[in-house]
Design a protein around this nucleic acid. Structure first.
Length: 185
DNA sequence: AATATAAGCAACCGCCTCTTG
DNA sequence: ACAAGAGGCGGTTGCTTATAT
């Protein structure tokens, strides 16, 4: 039943890629395309599993990858898309040509996330952190509303519309994501 | 100059969905 | 319809480099 095993994991190399390995992978894909990752390592003469080859190609070797610092525009796009999509890095990457999901994820975790936290914004919900607000602001909505917050935040970051208005209505009831095992198939 | 700590990032791990036989 | 592998994705780790003391 099913298909033949992916690859014999014994003896396969792990860890950082060498320039020779990179070149083998590039040469093979330029000649044959990046279709079947299962047979690719063997045909390309690589002691790697297909998964490792795919990751190396998509995150590093692909010719259309844009390397270097993220622009302010890209950062704004990431924040905006994250407010809508959450941690769907591959979906976010689709909207940022030349950037990989891994690169965006790393940038989020090392830069943007910290930046938002410094500003008192929860990087998950894109709303003010409740533990940093005084009770008056929580129980007296007239003192504080999402539009004000969004406007202030947008002004600080130079973003036109930071948060999707549909989800930024500052609900006082926090609803965490439904665990995967509770989601019916 | 040496050491400690923080930041950045490539790559791995494990889970989930899709595809195939 | 079902089982099992392939491919894809997000989370995490651990190595390297930069900065502070």
């Amino acid at each position: 039943m099913g298909r033949t095993p992916c690859c014999d994991k014994n003896g396969l190399k792990k860890g950082p890629w060498t320039t020779e390995e990179d070149q083998k992978l590039i040469d093979y894909i330029q000649k044959n395309g990046s279709g079947n990752w299962r047979i690719l390592p063997k045909n390309a003469g690589l002691q790697r599993c297909g998964k490792s080859c795919r990751l190396r190609w998509t995150n590093y070797l692909r010719p259309d990858i844009k390397r270097g610092k993220f622009s302010l525009e890209e950062e704004e796009t990431i924040i905006h898309l994250h407010s809508i999509l959450g941690n769907k890095w591959s979906a976010i990457a689709v909207r940022l040509p030349g950037r990989t999901d891994n690169e965006i994820k790393n940038y989020w975790n090392t830069h943007i996330r910290k930046k938002l936290l410094r500003m008192g914004i929860d990087p998950i919900t894109h709303r003010p952190r409740l533990d940093l607000l005084d009770l008056n602001s929580i129980f007296n909505p007239s003192l504080y509303n999402s539009t004000q917050w969004n406007n202030n935040l947008s002004r600080l970051l130079g973003v036109q519309s930071l948060v999707n208005p549909e989800i930024s209505q500052f609900p006082l009831i926090f609803s965490p994501p439904k665990p995967k095992f509770l989601i019916a198939k």
